[in-house]
Amino acid sequence: MTSSSTPGLTRFNTADDDEARTALRAVCASGAWVEAVLARRPYPDLTALRTTSDAVMAALTPADLAEATAAHPPIGRPTPGDPVSAREQRGMADAPAGLKAETLALNLAYQEKFGHVFLVCATGLSAVRLRDAVRARIGNTPEREREIVREELGKINRIRLAGLVEAPGDTPDRTTTDGSPP
């Protein structure tokens, strides 16, 4: 993305603190993340906003991560009435009943082991890939899983930040700072 600001980013940069704080809470529920990202406004572009988000995410404590994770619904059960949640979990929407049941059982086992919902950046993933992700990660140590959750939250934040600064008619840059998809 160029260094120019989009109308949506300008709107975010010039919003009063309470309005910007509310918008950031919709991206990530960690109060520490929200306050740190808010404190660094204004942002010249989406890349700078994402870079700050990544740096703040890397510094979150386990308690901050738990706060952020607690706001995410289980895979296969998006938050009712929340179009962002439904869009992010679209891969599970038309899954066969057996696959949904298996994923739910794995989610429950994961939650029992780790004390929080299974968190993955579900955007663009099929139901099979979502189920397989739970299967692959359920054997992790709590420490390893916490770092994976941190990475997945970072991916989710990047996508949501692009949506946050998008204004009608904007075409947000949906690549990361290294040119790969968010």
Rank of each mutant, 00 (worst) to 15 (best):
T2K: 11
T2L: 07
S4H: 04
S4V: 09
S5K: 08
P7K: 12
P7F: 12
G8H: 12
D17T: 15
A20G: 04
A20W: 03
R21N: 04
L24V: 08
R25I: 15
A26H: 11
A26I: 08
V27P: 00
C28P: 00
A29T: 14
A32I: 15
W33L: 00
W33N: 03
A39T: 12
P42C: 07
P44C: 10
A48Q: 08
A48S: 10
L49M: 13
R50C: 04
R50K: 13
T51W: 03
S53Q: 10
S53E: 07
S53G: 10
A55T: 15
A55H: 12
V56Q: 04
T61K: 06
T61Q: 07
A71F: 11
P74Q: 10
G76I: 00
R77V: 02
T79L: 13
T79G: 05
T79W: 09
P80V: 04
G81Y: 08
G81D: 09
G81W: 10
V84Y: 11
V84W: 14
A86G: 14
E88S: 02
Q89Y: 08
M92Q: 04
A93W: 11
A93Q: 13
A93Y: 10
A95D: 02
P96S: 14
P96A: 14
A97H: 00
G98E: 01
K100T: 09
E102Q: 15
N107H: 11
A109Y: 02
Q111D: 13
K113W: 09
F114E: 05
G115V: 04
C121Y: 05
A122E: 04
A122K: 05
L125Q: 10
S126I: 02
V128S: 01
R129V: 11
R131C: 01
R131D: 02
D132V: 02
A133H: 01
A133S: 07
R137Y: 12
N140T: 10
E143I: 10
E145K: 15
R146L: 14
V149Q: 05
E151D: 14
E152L: 04
G154F: 08
G154A: 11
N157W: 02
A162C: 08
L164D: 01
V165L: 02
E166Y: 00
A167Q: 09
P168L: 10
G169S: 13
D173T: 15
R174Y: 13
T176V: 12
T176N: 14
T177R: 10
G179A: 06
S180V: 13
